[in-house]
Write a protein that binds this DNA or RNA. Sequence first.
DNA 1: TTCGCTGCAAAGGTTTTGCATCGGA
DNA 2: TCCGATGCAAAACCTTTGCAGCGAA
Lengths: 146, 146
Amino acid sequence: MTPNLDSLSAFRHLCRQHGIAATHQRQAVYECVMESNDHPTPELLHERVRRRIPMISLATIYKCVHTFMRIGLWKEASLHHGPVRVDPNLRPHHHLVCRMCGSMTDISHSGVDLLRIFGKLPRRFRADTVVAEILGTCVDCQIRRR
Amino acid sequence: MTPNLDSLSAFRHLCRQHGIAATHQRQAVYECVMESNDHPTPELLHERVRRRIPMISLATIYKCVHTFMRIGLWKEASLHHGPVRVDPNLRPHHHLVCRMCGSMTDISHSGVDLLRIFGKLPRRFRADTVVAEILGTCVDCQIRRR
DNA sequence: TTCGCTGCAAAGGTTTTGCATCGGA
DNA sequence: TCCGATGCAAAACCTTTGCAGCGAA
């Protein structure tokens, strides 16, 4: 059973669990993200955290974000960001995305109408497309690794 | 009925339909993408197109890609690329992504097990996650626009 | 005290832009 | 001929990195 800790010691506990130092920069970044309802970019996070620690640098934000992702506390919401990729296939289809090399392969729509599955979306959001992104490891990277 | 045209005049026809000039650079970029089975980045496309037009610049590749996307011939396979976005929500969930402002909102998993729906994936791809990305226009942008 | 973390500044990678020139219609 | 497209170079944007000094343990 997790002990009922206040915010500060809960954060220290978390850091100890993962073997990282509990700096106040990390705590501020952590709390700002956990209080967010959106999915902030490092830039936006920097703005928010600076209200508490005016001198914190953007590089530190990036480092904190990577650290928390590495230890599995957060994920990257923006899948396969990086260079644009062109898709000339206009028929509905989904993507197999390799986490290691970033390669993308189409797979057919196969009669799965996701817009129907997600029929009860928030009424206020005007949806036009639903794409399934299937993340994993491609054949080449399975062979190549280790 | 579309006339049966050879490659060159088919391309000219397409350009005329969309009111853009049929330059040989655009034709080479167009053909390279249409012959691709992957989803090339501008960089990779540049390499490939240079086999035909050694002096073509990377800026032209970017401009062509934007043009073909603008007229609706191609899409962007890499959804919401750009700055990283942090996602501290570790429970399975999907995303509402606004095409205009890039904002992302979580929607609940709602019992839809996409990995089961996509049960018959290519055996060789080792899938670990399926995320549905629901693209459209958020409330704020619906109000803001025009 | 020690080692990991921060802040700064520089560099790396991707994309856009301004402008002179070229070429398609 | 005319206007839009290209090529180049510079700038803008996003992210990573190296290193000296700081601070958590």
